[in-house]
Design a protein around this nucleic acid. Sequence first.
DNA 1: GCCGCCAATTGACCCAGATCAAGGCAAATC
DNA 2: GATTTGCCTTGATCTGGGTCAATTGGCGGC
Lengths: 236, 236
Amino acid sequence: MDEVQGYAAELRRAYLFSQVSDEHLQSLIKSAQQVRLGAGEILFSHGQRAERFFLLREGLMKLFRVSPEGDEKIIEITQPGQTFAEAVLFMGTEGRYPVSAQAIHDSRLFAFHYAPFRELLTSSADACFGMLASLSRRLHMLVNQIESLTLQSATYRLVAYLLEQIPRDIQESPEVLLTTPKSAIAGRLAMQPETLSRILAKLRNSSLIDVHANHIILRDVQALRGLIHRPPPGES
Amino acid sequence: MDEVQGYAAELRRAYLFSQVSDEHLQSLIKSAQQVRLGAGEILFSHGQRAERFFLLREGLMKLFRVSPEGDEKIIEITQPGQTFAEAVLFMGTEGRYPVSAQAIHDSRLFAFHYAPFRELLTSSADACFGMLASLSRRLHMLVNQIESLTLQSATYRLVAYLLEQIPRDIQESPEVLLTTPKSAIAGRLAMQPETLSRILAKLRNSSLIDVHANHIILRDVQALRGLIHRPPPGES
DNA sequence: GCCGCCAATTGACCCAGATCAAGGCAAATC
DNA sequence: GATTTGCCTTGATCTGGGTCAATTGGCGGC
Protein backbone atom coordinates (compact mmCIF):
# COMPACT_ATOMS: atom_id res chain seq x y z
CA MET A 1 0.00 0.00 0.00
CA ASP A 2 1.16 3.51 -0.72
CA GLU A 3 -1.47 5.06 1.47
CA VAL A 4 0.27 3.52 4.44
CA GLN A 5 2.78 6.36 4.32
CA GLY A 6 0.05 8.94 4.53
CA TYR A 7 -1.65 7.08 7.33
CA ALA A 8 1.59 6.92 9.27
CA ALA A 9 1.86 10.70 9.16
CA GLU A 10 -1.75 10.96 10.25
CA LEU A 11 -1.23 8.65 13.20
CA ARG A 12 1.93 10.38 14.27
CA ARG A 13 -0.07 13.49 15.06
CA ALA A 14 -1.78 11.65 17.91
CA TYR A 15 0.23 11.90 21.13
CA LEU A 16 -0.08 8.19 21.57
CA PHE A 17 1.87 7.40 18.43
CA SER A 18 4.23 10.35 18.33
CA GLN A 19 7.18 8.34 19.63
CA VAL A 20 6.59 5.16 17.68
CA SER A 21 9.06 4.12 14.99
CA ASP A 22 8.03 3.97 11.32
CA GLU A 23 8.21 0.21 11.07
CA HIS A 24 6.07 -0.32 14.12
CA LEU A 25 3.60 2.22 12.95
CA GLN A 26 3.24 0.61 9.58
CA SER A 27 2.70 -2.85 10.94
CA LEU A 28 0.14 -1.35 13.25
CA ILE A 29 -1.66 0.32 10.37
CA LYS A 30 -1.85 -2.95 8.50
CA SER A 31 -3.66 -4.53 11.41
CA ALA A 32 -5.99 -1.57 11.85
CA GLN A 33 -9.49 -1.37 10.50
CA GLN A 34 -11.33 1.59 9.09
CA VAL A 35 -14.70 2.43 10.56
CA ARG A 36 -17.38 4.79 9.32
CA LEU A 37 -20.26 5.98 11.42
CA GLY A 38 -23.29 8.08 10.58
CA ALA A 39 -24.38 10.81 12.98
CA GLY A 40 -26.04 9.23 15.98
CA GLU A 41 -24.59 5.76 15.46
CA ILE A 42 -23.27 3.94 18.50
CA LEU A 43 -19.70 2.68 18.28
CA PHE A 44 -19.72 0.75 21.53
CA SER A 45 -21.72 0.65 24.72
CA HIS A 46 -20.87 0.76 28.38
CA GLY A 47 -20.14 -2.73 29.66
CA GLN A 48 -19.34 -4.26 26.29
CA ARG A 49 -16.16 -6.34 25.94
CA ALA A 50 -13.34 -4.00 25.00
CA GLU A 51 -11.18 -5.43 22.25
CA ARG A 52 -10.33 -2.32 20.29
CA PHE A 53 -9.47 1.27 20.80
CA PHE A 54 -9.88 4.10 18.34
CA LEU A 55 -8.42 7.09 16.61
CA LEU A 56 -10.93 9.63 15.34
CA ARG A 57 -9.93 10.80 11.88
CA GLU A 58 -12.86 12.95 10.98
CA GLY A 59 -16.16 13.90 12.56
CA LEU A 60 -17.02 14.13 16.22
CA MET A 61 -17.63 11.54 18.92
CA LYS A 62 -18.99 11.72 22.42
CA LEU A 63 -18.13 9.43 25.29
CA PHE A 64 -20.87 9.23 27.85
CA ARG A 65 -22.59 7.34 30.61
CA VAL A 66 -26.28 6.80 31.08
CA SER A 67 -27.85 6.56 34.51
CA PRO A 68 -30.60 4.01 35.17
CA GLU A 69 -33.06 6.90 34.93
CA GLY A 70 -31.86 7.67 31.44
CA ASP A 71 -29.95 10.84 32.16
CA GLU A 72 -26.86 11.12 30.05
CA LYS A 73 -23.54 12.48 31.23
CA ILE A 74 -20.98 13.32 28.58
CA ILE A 75 -17.54 12.49 29.88
CA GLU A 76 -15.62 13.65 26.86
CA ILE A 77 -16.09 15.03 23.39
CA THR A 78 -13.44 13.61 21.08
CA GLN A 79 -12.02 15.79 18.31
CA PRO A 80 -10.37 14.48 15.14
CA GLY A 81 -6.78 13.39 15.77
CA GLN A 82 -7.53 12.11 19.25
CA THR A 83 -7.46 8.53 20.44
CA PHE A 84 -9.93 7.15 22.91
CA ALA A 85 -10.63 3.99 24.89
CA GLU A 86 -6.93 3.11 25.00
CA ALA A 87 -7.05 2.61 28.73
CA VAL A 88 -9.28 -0.45 28.75
CA LEU A 89 -6.63 -2.54 27.06
CA PHE A 90 -4.82 -2.75 30.36
CA MET A 91 -7.66 -3.52 32.65
CA GLY A 92 -6.83 -7.22 32.61
CA THR A 93 -8.06 -10.06 30.49
CA GLU A 94 -11.71 -9.12 30.60
CA GLY A 95 -11.69 -5.39 30.03
CA ARG A 96 -14.99 -3.72 29.40
CA TYR A 97 -15.73 -0.24 28.13
CA PRO A 98 -16.50 2.03 31.06
CA VAL A 99 -18.43 4.44 28.82
CA SER A 100 -20.48 4.42 25.65
CA ALA A 101 -19.35 6.08 22.42
CA GLN A 102 -21.65 7.65 19.88
CA ALA A 103 -21.00 9.69 16.75
CA ILE A 104 -22.29 13.26 16.95
CA HIS A 105 -21.52 13.93 13.30
CA ASP A 106 -20.70 11.48 10.53
CA SER A 107 -17.28 10.13 11.45
CA ARG A 108 -14.37 8.08 10.17
CA LEU A 109 -12.06 6.22 12.52
CA PHE A 110 -9.23 3.76 12.75
CA ALA A 111 -9.82 0.81 15.02
CA PHE A 112 -6.84 -0.92 16.60
CA HIS A 113 -7.02 -4.36 18.07
CA TYR A 114 -5.68 -5.23 21.44
CA ALA A 115 -3.14 -7.91 20.48
CA PRO A 116 -0.99 -6.17 17.86
CA PHE A 117 -0.84 -3.06 19.92
CA ARG A 118 0.20 -4.91 22.99
CA GLU A 119 2.96 -6.49 20.97
CA LEU A 120 4.13 -3.08 19.92
CA LEU A 121 4.28 -1.93 23.51
CA THR A 122 6.35 -4.86 24.70
CA SER A 123 8.87 -4.25 21.97
CA SER A 124 9.20 -0.53 22.34
CA ALA A 125 9.83 1.29 25.56
CA ASP A 126 9.23 4.58 23.78
CA ALA A 127 5.79 3.48 22.69
CA CYS A 128 5.15 2.50 26.27
CA PHE A 129 6.09 5.93 27.43
CA GLY A 130 3.89 7.53 24.85
CA MET A 131 1.04 5.46 26.15
CA LEU A 132 1.79 6.34 29.74
CA ALA A 133 1.98 10.02 28.91
CA SER A 134 -1.29 9.79 27.05
CA LEU A 135 -3.03 8.12 29.95
CA SER A 136 -1.69 10.51 32.52
CA ARG A 137 -2.78 13.46 30.45
CA ARG A 138 -6.26 12.01 30.42
CA LEU A 139 -6.01 11.40 34.15
CA HIS A 140 -5.24 15.04 34.78
CA MET A 141 -8.08 16.16 32.58
CA LEU A 142 -10.45 14.05 34.61
CA VAL A 143 -9.11 15.41 37.87
CA ASN A 144 -9.66 18.91 36.53
CA GLN A 145 -13.14 17.98 35.46
CA ILE A 146 -13.97 16.62 38.89
CA GLU A 147 -12.71 19.78 40.44
CA SER A 148 -14.74 22.05 38.24
CA LEU A 149 -17.84 19.93 38.64
CA THR A 150 -17.72 20.09 42.40
CA LEU A 151 -15.91 23.29 43.21
CA GLN A 152 -17.34 25.67 40.65
CA SER A 153 -20.68 27.01 39.56
CA ALA A 154 -22.20 26.50 36.15
CA THR A 155 -21.08 29.97 35.06
CA TYR A 156 -17.51 29.22 36.08
CA ARG A 157 -17.53 26.00 34.12
CA LEU A 158 -18.91 27.58 30.99
CA VAL A 159 -16.52 30.53 31.05
CA ALA A 160 -13.58 28.21 31.68
CA TYR A 161 -14.71 26.13 28.75
CA LEU A 162 -14.90 29.15 26.47
CA LEU A 163 -11.47 30.36 27.52
CA GLU A 164 -10.03 26.90 26.88
CA GLN A 165 -11.19 27.12 23.29
CA ILE A 166 -9.42 30.30 22.25
CA PRO A 167 -5.75 29.24 22.16
CA ARG A 168 -6.41 26.94 19.24
CA ASP A 169 -8.12 29.66 17.25
CA ILE A 170 -6.57 32.91 16.13
CA GLN A 171 -5.49 34.50 19.36
CA GLU A 172 -5.97 38.13 18.33
CA SER A 173 -9.70 37.93 17.69
CA PRO A 174 -11.01 35.90 20.60
CA GLU A 175 -13.82 34.14 18.83
CA VAL A 176 -15.06 30.68 19.59
CA LEU A 177 -16.86 28.62 17.00
CA LEU A 178 -18.88 25.91 18.67
CA THR A 179 -18.42 22.86 16.50
CA THR A 180 -20.65 20.81 18.77
CA PRO A 181 -24.37 21.33 19.31
CA LYS A 182 -24.96 23.43 22.39
CA SER A 183 -26.90 20.65 24.05
CA ALA A 184 -23.80 18.44 23.87
CA ILE A 185 -21.67 21.13 25.41
CA ALA A 186 -24.22 21.51 28.17
CA GLY A 187 -23.91 17.78 28.77
CA ARG A 188 -20.15 17.92 28.90
CA LEU A 189 -20.36 20.75 31.43
CA ALA A 190 -22.96 18.91 33.51
CA MET A 191 -25.78 21.39 33.10
CA GLN A 192 -29.10 21.55 31.27
CA PRO A 193 -29.28 23.20 27.83
CA GLU A 194 -31.62 25.78 29.36
CA THR A 195 -29.02 26.72 31.91
CA LEU A 196 -26.33 27.09 29.28
CA SER A 197 -28.61 29.31 27.26
CA ARG A 198 -29.39 31.47 30.26
CA ILE A 199 -25.76 31.89 31.19
CA LEU A 200 -24.87 32.93 27.66
CA ALA A 201 -27.67 35.47 27.83
CA LYS A 202 -26.37 36.77 31.15
CA LEU A 203 -22.84 37.15 29.80
CA ARG A 204 -24.21 38.86 26.72
CA ASN A 205 -26.12 41.36 28.83
CA SER A 206 -22.94 42.15 30.72
CA SER A 207 -21.42 42.65 27.23
CA LEU A 208 -18.66 40.22 28.05
CA ILE A 209 -19.48 38.23 24.95
CA ASP A 210 -21.43 38.44 21.69
CA VAL A 211 -23.43 35.45 20.56
CA HIS A 212 -24.35 34.82 16.95
CA ALA A 213 -25.78 31.33 16.77
CA ASN A 214 -22.82 29.00 17.36
CA HIS A 215 -20.32 31.81 16.90
CA ILE A 216 -19.27 33.45 20.14
CA ILE A 217 -17.06 36.51 20.40
CA LEU A 218 -15.28 37.04 23.69
CA ARG A 219 -15.41 40.80 24.00
CA ASP A 220 -13.59 41.07 27.30
CA VAL A 221 -11.25 38.18 27.91
CA GLN A 222 -9.72 39.97 30.88
CA ALA A 223 -13.03 40.25 32.66
CA LEU A 224 -13.90 36.65 31.84
CA ARG A 225 -10.61 35.50 33.30
CA GLY A 226 -11.33 37.54 36.39
CA LEU A 227 -14.72 35.91 36.65
CA ILE A 228 -13.29 32.46 37.10
CA HIS A 229 -10.48 33.52 39.40
CA ARG A 230 -12.45 35.32 42.04
CA PRO A 231 -15.95 34.78 43.36
CA PRO A 232 -18.84 36.72 41.76
CA PRO A 233 -19.64 38.78 44.89
CA GLY A 234 -17.04 41.45 44.10
CA GLU A 235 -16.03 43.79 46.88
CA SER A 236 -13.13 46.11 47.79
CA MET B 1 20.17 -4.80 54.15
CA ASP B 2 18.08 -7.70 55.31
CA GLU B 3 14.98 -5.58 55.60
CA VAL B 4 15.06 -5.19 51.85
CA GLN B 5 13.48 -8.62 51.52
CA GLY B 6 10.58 -7.62 53.72
CA TYR B 7 10.17 -4.38 51.88
CA ALA B 8 10.09 -6.19 48.57
CA ALA B 9 7.18 -8.29 49.76
CA GLU B 10 5.46 -5.17 50.97
CA LEU B 11 5.86 -3.40 47.64
CA ARG B 12 4.72 -6.38 45.66
CA ARG B 13 1.29 -6.03 47.21
CA ALA B 14 0.81 -2.76 45.35
CA TYR B 15 -0.56 -3.33 41.86
CA LEU B 16 2.09 -1.12 40.45
CA PHE B 17 4.90 -3.41 41.54
CA SER B 18 3.20 -6.75 41.30
CA GLN B 19 4.89 -7.65 38.02
CA VAL B 20 8.34 -6.30 38.78
CA SER B 21 11.26 -8.71 39.15
CA ASP B 22 13.07 -9.12 42.45
CA GLU B 23 16.27 -7.50 41.29
CA HIS B 24 14.50 -4.46 39.97
CA LEU B 25 12.45 -4.17 43.06
CA GLN B 26 15.45 -4.30 45.31
CA SER B 27 17.36 -1.68 43.41
CA LEU B 28 14.25 0.45 43.53
CA ILE B 29 14.00 0.02 47.28
CA LYS B 30 17.57 1.12 47.73
CA SER B 31 16.82 4.35 45.96
CA ALA B 32 13.59 4.92 47.88
CA GLN B 33 13.23 7.12 50.92
CA GLN B 34 11.13 6.65 53.98
CA VAL B 35 8.80 9.42 54.98
CA ARG B 36 6.88 9.96 58.18
CA LEU B 37 4.03 12.42 58.54
CA GLY B 38 2.02 13.51 61.53
CA ALA B 39 -1.73 13.90 61.19
CA GLY B 40 -2.47 17.06 59.26
CA GLU B 41 0.97 17.41 57.72
CA ILE B 42 1.17 18.34 54.06
CA LEU B 43 3.22 16.03 51.86
CA PHE B 44 3.06 18.13 48.72
CA SER B 45 0.96 20.93 47.31
CA HIS B 46 -0.86 21.49 44.08
CA GLY B 47 1.45 23.06 41.53
CA GLN B 48 4.68 21.98 43.17
CA ARG B 49 7.35 20.32 41.00
CA ALA B 50 6.68 16.62 40.96
CA GLU B 51 9.85 14.60 41.44
CA ARG B 52 8.60 11.73 43.50
CA PHE B 53 5.64 9.46 43.85
CA PHE B 54 4.57 7.54 46.90
CA LEU B 55 3.44 4.29 48.43
CA LEU B 56 1.43 4.61 51.61
CA ARG B 57 2.58 1.99 54.11
CA GLU B 58 0.56 2.97 57.13
CA GLY B 59 -1.91 5.68 58.03
CA LEU B 60 -4.27 7.57 55.76
CA MET B 61 -3.74 10.27 53.17
CA LYS B 62 -6.11 12.51 51.29
CA LEU B 63 -5.54 13.97 47.86
CA PHE B 64 -7.43 17.18 47.31
CA ARG B 65 -7.79 20.45 45.47
CA VAL B 66 -8.51 23.84 46.92
CA SER B 67 -10.53 26.41 45.01
CA PRO B 68 -9.51 30.09 45.09
CA GLU B 69 -12.35 30.60 47.55
CA GLY B 70 -10.83 28.06 49.90
CA ASP B 71 -13.27 25.23 49.40
CA GLU B 72 -11.62 21.86 49.50
CA LYS B 73 -12.50 18.96 47.24
CA ILE B 74 -11.15 15.56 48.18
CA ILE B 75 -10.30 13.65 45.02
CA GLU B 76 -9.16 10.49 46.68
CA ILE B 77 -8.54 8.95 50.06
CA THR B 78 -5.50 6.71 49.91
CA GLN B 79 -5.40 3.52 51.96
CA PRO B 80 -2.25 1.71 53.07
CA GLY B 81 -0.77 -0.38 50.27
CA GLN B 82 -1.77 2.07 47.58
CA THR B 83 0.50 4.19 45.46
CA PHE B 84 -0.35 7.72 44.45
CA ALA B 85 0.97 10.52 42.25
CA GLU B 86 2.58 8.06 39.84
CA ALA B 87 0.95 9.70 36.88
CA VAL B 88 2.82 12.98 37.02
CA LEU B 89 6.09 11.29 36.18
CA PHE B 90 4.96 11.10 32.59
CA MET B 91 3.60 14.55 32.13
CA GLY B 92 6.82 15.70 30.45
CA THR B 93 9.96 17.28 31.78
CA GLU B 94 8.26 19.77 34.06
CA GLY B 95 5.55 17.73 35.73
CA ARG B 96 3.69 19.34 38.57
CA TYR B 97 1.38 17.79 41.12
CA PRO B 98 -2.22 18.35 40.06
CA VAL B 99 -3.46 17.91 43.63
CA SER B 100 -2.28 18.41 47.18
CA ALA B 101 -1.63 15.57 49.60
CA GLN B 102 -2.16 15.71 53.33
CA ALA B 103 -1.97 13.10 56.06
CA ILE B 104 -5.29 12.46 57.80
CA HIS B 105 -3.69 10.21 60.41
CA ASP B 106 -0.04 9.76 61.27
CA SER B 107 1.46 8.03 58.25
CA ARG B 108 4.54 6.26 56.97
CA LEU B 109 5.38 6.19 53.28
CA PHE B 110 7.97 5.20 50.74
CA ALA B 111 9.00 7.92 48.33
CA PHE B 112 10.32 6.96 44.90
CA HIS B 113 12.27 9.30 42.73
CA TYR B 114 11.51 9.87 39.10
CA ALA B 115 14.82 8.81 37.56
CA PRO B 116 15.38 5.32 38.98
CA PHE B 117 11.81 4.41 38.36
CA ARG B 118 11.91 5.58 34.81
CA GLU B 119 14.99 3.45 34.31
CA LEU B 120 13.12 0.47 35.63
CA LEU B 121 10.30 1.03 33.18
CA THR B 122 12.56 1.26 30.16
CA SER B 123 14.19 -2.01 31.07
CA SER B 124 11.10 -3.98 31.87
CA ALA B 125 8.05 -4.24 29.68
CA ASP B 126 6.23 -6.01 32.50
CA ALA B 127 6.80 -3.12 34.83
CA CYS B 128 5.49 -0.87 32.10
CA PHE B 129 2.34 -2.91 31.88
CA GLY B 130 1.90 -2.83 35.61
CA MET B 131 2.12 0.91 35.45
CA LEU B 132 -0.33 1.12 32.58
CA ALA B 133 -2.79 -1.12 34.38
CA SER B 134 -2.43 0.96 37.51
CA LEU B 135 -3.14 4.18 35.63
CA SER B 136 -6.09 2.81 33.76
CA ARG B 137 -7.60 1.51 36.95
CA ARG B 138 -7.32 5.00 38.37
CA LEU B 139 -8.80 6.38 35.17
CA HIS B 140 -11.85 4.20 35.54
CA MET B 141 -12.28 5.19 39.14
CA LEU B 142 -12.30 8.81 38.14
CA VAL B 143 -14.82 8.20 35.39
CA ASN B 144 -17.03 6.48 37.93
CA GLN B 145 -16.59 9.36 40.30
CA ILE B 146 -17.55 11.88 37.64
CA GLU B 147 -20.61 9.85 36.88
CA SER B 148 -21.76 9.66 40.45
CA LEU B 149 -21.05 13.34 41.04
CA THR B 150 -23.16 14.44 38.10
CA LEU B 151 -25.72 11.72 37.63
CA GLN B 152 -26.65 10.97 41.19
CA SER B 153 -27.99 12.71 44.24
CA ALA B 154 -26.17 12.93 47.52
CA THR B 155 -28.22 10.04 48.93
CA TYR B 156 -27.30 7.86 45.96
CA ARG B 157 -23.63 8.62 46.40
CA LEU B 158 -23.62 7.88 50.10
CA VAL B 159 -25.54 4.62 49.75
CA ALA B 160 -23.27 3.53 46.90
CA TYR B 161 -20.29 4.33 49.09
CA LEU B 162 -21.65 2.28 51.97
CA LEU B 163 -22.39 -0.68 49.70
CA GLU B 164 -18.88 -0.50 48.27
CA GLN B 165 -17.48 -0.96 51.75
CA ILE B 166 -19.14 -4.24 52.68
CA PRO B 167 -17.41 -6.77 50.38
CA ARG B 168 -14.11 -6.23 52.16
CA ASP B 169 -15.66 -6.77 55.57
CA ILE B 170 -17.40 -9.91 56.74
CA GLN B 171 -20.15 -10.41 54.22
CA GLU B 172 -22.67 -12.08 56.53
CA SER B 173 -23.10 -9.19 58.91
CA PRO B 174 -23.24 -6.14 56.70
CA GLU B 175 -21.54 -3.69 59.00
CA VAL B 176 -19.38 -0.82 57.91
CA LEU B 177 -16.76 0.64 60.18
CA LEU B 178 -15.84 4.12 59.07
CA THR B 179 -12.09 4.35 59.46
CA THR B 180 -12.07 7.93 58.24
CA PRO B 181 -13.67 10.90 59.99
CA LYS B 182 -17.14 11.54 58.64
CA SER B 183 -16.16 14.98 57.46
CA ALA B 184 -13.52 13.44 55.18
CA ILE B 185 -16.04 11.03 53.75
CA ALA B 186 -18.40 13.90 53.14
CA GLY B 187 -15.61 15.64 51.24
CA ARG B 188 -14.85 12.59 49.16
CA LEU B 189 -18.54 12.35 48.27
CA ALA B 190 -18.75 16.06 47.48
CA MET B 191 -21.22 17.02 50.17
CA GLN B 192 -21.17 18.93 53.43
CA PRO B 193 -20.81 17.08 56.74
CA GLU B 194 -24.28 18.37 57.63
CA THR B 195 -25.76 16.77 54.57
CA LEU B 196 -24.08 13.47 55.28
CA SER B 197 -25.40 13.57 58.79
CA ARG B 198 -28.92 14.31 57.61
CA ILE B 199 -28.89 11.51 55.07
CA LEU B 200 -27.71 9.03 57.68
CA ALA B 201 -30.55 10.21 59.91
CA LYS B 202 -33.03 9.78 57.07
CA LEU B 203 -31.82 6.24 56.33
CA ARG B 204 -31.96 5.44 60.03
CA ASN B 205 -35.57 6.63 60.25
CA SER B 206 -36.45 4.37 57.33
CA SER B 207 -34.71 1.63 59.38
CA LEU B 208 -32.48 0.80 56.45
CA ILE B 209 -29.42 1.24 58.65
CA ASP B 210 -28.36 1.56 62.27
CA VAL B 211 -25.79 4.13 63.23
CA HIS B 212 -23.61 3.84 66.32
CA ALA B 213 -20.96 6.53 66.03
CA ASN B 214 -18.64 5.41 63.23
CA HIS B 215 -20.15 1.94 63.19
CA ILE B 216 -22.94 1.51 60.66
CA ILE B 217 -25.08 -1.57 60.29
CA LEU B 218 -26.80 -2.06 56.97
CA ARG B 219 -30.11 -3.56 58.05
CA ASP B 220 -31.60 -3.96 54.59
CA VAL B 221 -28.97 -4.31 51.90
CA GLN B 222 -31.61 -5.29 49.37
CA ALA B 223 -33.55 -2.08 49.85
CA LEU B 224 -30.37 -0.02 49.77
CA ARG B 225 -29.38 -1.62 46.49
CA GLY B 226 -32.83 -0.84 45.14
CA LEU B 227 -32.43 2.73 46.23
CA ILE B 228 -29.50 3.34 43.98
CA HIS B 229 -30.88 1.41 41.04
CA ARG B 230 -34.23 3.09 40.64
CA PRO B 231 -35.34 6.65 41.34
CA PRO B 232 -36.84 7.51 44.74
CA PRO B 233 -40.36 8.26 43.38
CA GLY B 234 -41.29 4.58 43.54
CA GLU B 235 -44.19 3.34 41.50
CA SER B 236 -45.04 -0.17 40.48
C1' DG C 1 -14.98 18.02 88.48
C1' DC C 2 -14.77 21.71 85.23
C1' DC C 3 -13.43 23.72 81.04
C1' DG C 4 -12.19 24.09 76.29
C1' DC C 5 -12.01 21.81 71.98
C1' DC C 6 -13.63 19.37 68.13
C1' DA C 7 -16.72 16.26 65.55
C1' DA C 8 -21.31 15.37 64.79
C1' DT C 9 -26.13 16.54 64.83
C1' DT C 10 -30.22 19.31 64.16
C1' DG C 11 -32.98 23.30 62.78
C1' DA C 12 -34.11 27.40 59.90
C1' DC C 13 -33.36 29.68 55.82
C1' DC C 14 -31.79 30.46 51.07
C1' DC C 15 -30.31 30.00 46.32
C1' DA C 16 -28.40 27.97 41.93
C1' DG C 17 -29.92 25.35 38.85
C1' DA C 18 -33.42 21.66 37.52
C1' DT C 19 -37.87 21.07 35.73
C1' DC C 20 -42.04 22.17 33.26
C1' DA C 21 -44.06 24.67 29.68
C1' DA C 22 -44.34 27.84 25.90
C1' DG C 23 -42.78 30.09 22.08
C1' DG C 24 -39.10 31.50 18.31
C1' DC C 25 -36.52 30.51 14.33
C1' DA C 26 -34.22 28.20 10.52
C1' DA C 27 -33.55 24.34 7.63
C1' DA C 28 -35.74 20.49 5.62
C1' DT C 29 -39.91 18.43 3.48
C1' DC C 30 -44.09 18.63 1.08
C1' DG D 1 -45.57 29.08 0.44
C1' DA D 2 -47.14 26.09 4.15
C1' DT D 3 -45.80 22.56 7.49
C1' DT D 4 -42.94 19.77 10.02
C1' DT D 5 -38.73 18.98 12.74
C1' DG D 6 -34.92 20.09 15.61
C1' DC D 7 -32.57 23.23 18.30
C1' DC D 8 -32.46 27.07 21.02
C1' DT D 9 -34.33 30.61 24.11
C1' DT D 10 -37.26 32.49 27.69
C1' DG D 11 -40.38 32.52 31.61
C1' DA D 12 -42.39 30.54 35.92
C1' DT D 13 -41.93 27.47 39.56
C1' DC D 14 -39.81 23.98 42.52
C1' DT D 15 -36.27 21.70 45.35
C1' DG D 16 -31.81 19.47 46.93
C1' DG D 17 -28.50 20.59 49.35
C1' DG D 18 -25.49 24.55 50.90
C1' DT D 19 -24.95 27.97 54.64
C1' DC D 20 -25.31 29.76 59.20
C1' DA D 21 -26.05 28.93 63.82
C1' DA D 22 -27.22 26.62 68.03
C1' DT D 23 -26.86 22.18 70.65
C1' DT D 24 -24.92 17.87 72.13
C1' DG D 25 -21.50 14.62 73.37
C1' DG D 26 -17.08 12.67 73.94
C1' DC D 27 -12.22 13.42 75.49
C1' DG D 28 -7.88 15.30 77.19
C1' DG D 29 -5.73 18.72 80.27
C1' DC D 30 -5.60 21.19 84.47
